[in-house]
Design a protein around this nucleic acid. Structure first.
Lengths: 253, 253
DNA sequence: AGCGCCTTAATTGCATGCAGTTCGAGGAGC
DNA sequence: GCTCCTCGAACTGCATGCAATTAAGGCGCT
């Protein structure tokens, strides 16, 4: 039962695939924050390929919604609106309910072990950086999806999970992810027990709580602009109480 | 309420987008059957662009699952397995239930009119080619998704609907699509009435019936190979009862 | 005749070059 | 000092060229 059933659809040599994976990871670990610029040249240079390849990878990522491509403009890491975040979570809930419904009571011992191992890893990472915790939590869900052996489902769950991850980094506060870990354990238990209804409602409430923990309010209304983020710092700037050159900052973004 | 809220994620100039749209349409209308070869050169020539663009379009379509890309090989129209078809329909059901749940009782008059006009068009097309009927039926669902104003949902529903359309062309028989049209009308009515539960179950059974009408049995087991398709014709070939040059045919595929 | 090997034409993978557009810094004007 | 405008650098859009791989037809062999 090889867990390697990934994407059949990705044959563009895999230089492209490699860059995609690298960027995806950088994005969800917030090494690349939303809005970060991704010039083709730099990417190509960084990964030792030509612009052509970098460009192709960006296209791929754009199709997944992680990157925003505007004509004649530098590609940037996507900055989903609050509404889009909400939508993504709604879709995610349905898709993942489907996942666990298919999986309930059908997991092999090896698969259960793999899941447990992953959650253990999540546990161990609690002391480390938030970024890694978030990534692992996301990957738990993808691991689950993988076990359905449905490439389409895997692709959609992955995509939407990454997207949600991205929005979490935008709208959520410091993060108390311990509970998520317990919820993951509970889901595994219910899956093993094979109680379809139970595991579906567990997954539902799990994602719901993640979403609401993160998306409590459309706080930074339109989210993206630095204005809100910089507000607290404005007072401390060397000048008078006046807020510094906002127009400049806005354009800088 | 401009229905133009399509994809923010598609800015690669739109030469790419145009080719994608053309190919998608050709595929779902079965002008391009599953397995059909799609050489970059020919595509580029046909659309008056260079291979670079054609290639990019193919990549896009591959990400959507309509095209299969194998390293160093000519791209072909995807040939989903029966299992993949089943999976696609499962996902589609969940996504479209989400669509109508969001839409129930929230349609504007203009939107209702648009939907009715579309179904009328479906009705009118009943005499025409099957291909057009199928496309219109698919587009009804996409039109519905569009009205949610959720770009992500639109994208996923579109993708999965196209995929399903592709599999229908593979596994389904002549087609009795009249019932589908009535079902579409029933869905509109329930949406207007605003009965969430009703419309969700309607959509569920609608898609379910489409799926089971098409996917009755995993008849051509692993589907793709010409062997099964050619079996009935083998007898009639000019030679003895012997099946003709199988090895050659297999390679030809 | 049928089957397999080998040569050649087709096709992809990738990089690079050129033209057009955008970005951003610096200077003129208020 | 602040804003607006202008111009050079940076970047993208796209086509084309070259090397590597595959697909296909022709040859001799059985």
């Amino acid at each position: 039962m090889a867990p390697r059933s990934a994407n059949k659809t990705a044959a563009p040599s895999d230089k492209v695939g490699m860059i995609c994976r690298a960027l995806r990871r950088a994005i969800i670990e917030q090494a690349l924050a939303p809005g970060a610029k991704l010039p083709e040249d730099s990417l190509g240079e960084r990964f030792g390929v030509s612009r052509t390849i970098a460009r192709h990878a960006l296209g791929q990522l754009a199709a997944e919604g992680l990157v925003e491509l505007r004509r004649n403009r530098i590609a940037v890491v996507a900055t989903p609106s609050w509404q889009e975040a909400r939508d993504a979570f709604d879709i995610r809930i349905e898709l993942e309910r489907l996942v666990v419904r298919q999986l309930a009571g059908k997991l092999t011992k090896a698969q259960v072990a793999e899941l447990n191992a992953h959650v253990d890893a999540e546990d161990r990472a609690r002391d480390g950086s938030d970024a890694v915790s978030i990534r692992l939590a996301t990957e738990f869900h993808i691991l689950l999806a993988n076990m359905t052996n449905s490439p389409i489902l895997v692709r959609y769950v992955s995509e939407v999970a990454y997207r949600c991850c991205l929005t979490l980094s935008l709208y959520s506060r410091p993060h108390s992810s311990e509970c998520a870990i317990n919820e993951h354990r509970a889901i595994i238990a219910a899956l093993v027990k094979g109680d379809e209804a139970k595991v579906m409602s567990l997954m539902h409430s799990h994602l719901d709580s993640v979403a609401s923990r993160a998306l409590v309010a459309p706080a930074p209304q339109r989210g993206r602009d630095l204005l809100d983020i910089l507000a607290p710092y404005a007072e401390e700037s060397e000048g008078a109480g006046r807020v510094v050159k906002l127009s400049k900052v806005v354009r800088a973004r």
